[in-house]
Design a protein around this nucleic acid. Structure first.
Ligand SMILES: NC(=O)c1ccc[n+]([C@@H]2O[C@H](COP(=O)([O-])OP(=O)(O)OC[C@H]3O[C@@H](n4cnc5c(N)ncnc54)[C@H](O)[C@@H]3O)[C@@H](O)[C@H]2O)c1
Ligand SMILES: NC(=O)c1ccc[n+]([C@@H]2O[C@H](COP(=O)([O-])OP(=O)(O)OC[C@H]3O[C@@H](n4cnc5c(N)ncnc54)[C@H](O)[C@@H]3O)[C@@H](O)[C@H]2O)c1
Lengths: 218, 218
DNA sequence: GTAGATTTGTTATTATAATCACAAAGTGAG
DNA sequence: CTCACTTTGTGATTATAATAACAAATCTAC
């Protein structure tokens, strides 16, 4: 079963299914029907079944799906790698929070290297990770074989950081600065990017709120 | 022009266009063509023009679009409100970073209230915001007329927090815990939700990386 | 002012995704 | 074993989104 035949929309939902199934597990729900999951996620059960069929997941007619079995299959695609090392660029307020976050580990990620340009930060240590000079980025990242970088620097610095990254073996970027780095579809030619723009997320909520209000009036 | 006629896909891109136009502005680019913006975002220029036509944005044939003009129109939809107050629940590592973040203000958002359940944190102050007891949530939020809440508590606490929120006047939620709260389409009946799952974001990058490698091999 | 080069706005077309509809498979009671 | 009830898996259908195609408008240079 070739992954690339699975549409991106389906892949995106996989992560959501995974969280939902973890919920089932915690609740001690050993099996579930496509309706169970659909109800919780406010989607149609046919969509769930079709998505599952893409990844080859099998249920039993008249019965449903086995929670553990599906979770295992979904995770195999969604979180396939045991430990993937990533590099953090910018150990400020947000970067420190990320560096201190335990949750990544359980999902198979480890911030193995952290970089900053602030002399006062370079050399200090957070949770066993020594903050390194951004000038050593290329060298260090190559040595560790890291392919994913997280950008958490002020937006005016993003240009410099991108230069550094382009010049390195990094192939994918998680960008927290509010400057969309190329590509809506998250794939530029240089590297794969996902942009996380928290102000825009708030604004979206705000937009839906006003929309709700305006439809209520009509 | 009724907002609700504009497809969500277009609205989502609006935020991306906004950032791109800010980039043009910073570069001193007074006007642009649909191709300019399309090239930068790795999309087709017809899509840009069609999106713009949805929101009534007008360019000049043979010339292009005026940066300031379009930015103003896009922002009017994407970031319409001068100052929208939001409440933060959970002032831990991530919550503190958010509370300390200046960037929200420039986009029209202000974390006006912050709540925690930790006795040691309650009463202390960050950037002029006094951390309040989560038990006062309903009362305080109502008094301030706040409709948006940010959840940044450990995932096992999310159930309790949701109870509190359901019981209040909150209508929209930005959720950072890795437990998708209903609704893929970000709209449950109770309130509007956007989930931000950073581990999944990393995993998606990781997925695309392995996909890239596997297609290279074939 | 006209020709040729640009660039928009929009209709027509194609591609993609979601939903419907239903046969097939399984369960359980009597 | 049979009937009534569940629930899956998937081909057919519908809905939605993206792209292509091109006329209409504007600009520049001569
Ligand atoms: N703090 C938040 O909660 C939050 C929320 C949303 C978005 N963001 C975004 O995340 C980014 C970081 O925010 P923050 O609040 O952590 O900022 P910050 O100022 O606290 O930290 C930025 C860090 O990046 C370092 N840095 C600057 N230039 C660098 C370079 N060229 N190479 C390496 N390191 C460099 C600085 O020394 C600093 O330590 C910003 O773009 C911001 O818009 C932050
Ligand atoms: N730290 C990160 O960088 C990061 C990254 C990704 C996701 N997250 C997610 O964000 C959430 C918070 O992470 P964190 O690292 O800030 O955790 P944290 O433990 O540092 O902070 C959690 C805070 O929530 C408070 N809290 C707990 N229960 C509460 C309740 N019922 N009401 C009000 N406050 C309550 C705690 O007292 C604590 O101050 C987690 O769900 C985590 O998975 C964090």
């Amino acid at each position: 079963m070739n992954k690339s035949e699975v549409p991106d929309e389906v892949i995106n939902r996989l992560y959501i299914y995974a969280r939902c199934l973890e919920g089932f597990r915690e609740e001690g729900k050993k099996s579930f029907s496509s309706d169970d999951i659909a109800d919780r996620l406010n989607i149609k059960s046919t969509l769930v079944r079709k998505d599952f069929s893409y990844i080859g997941t099998m249920g039993k007619r008249g019965v449903g799906y086995d929670t553990e079995e599906v979770l295992k299959e979904v995770n195999q695609i969604a979180f396939p790698i045991k430990e993937r090392k990533v590099a953090l660029i910018g150990v400020g307020k947000l970067g420190s929070a990320l560096l201190n976050f335990y949750g990544f580990k359980t999902q198979g990620f480890k911030i193995a290297l952290a970089f900053d340009k602030d002399r006062r930060k370079i050399g200090s240590e957070i949770r066993g990770i020594k903050i390194d000079d951004i000038n050593n980025f290329k060298k260090r990242v190559k040595k560790e074989g890291i392919k994913i970088a997280i950008i958490a620097v002020p937006s005016e610095e993003v240009v410099n950081v991108i230069k550094e990254i382009k010049n390195s073996c990094i192939e994918a970027v998680l960008n927290f600065t509010p400057s969309y780095l190329s590509s809506l579809n998250n794939c530029s030619n240089d590297f794969i990017i996902r942009n996380i723009d928290l102000s825009s997320e708030l604004a979206r909520l705000s937009y839906y709120l006003s929309e709700k209000e305006s439809t209520k009036r009509n």
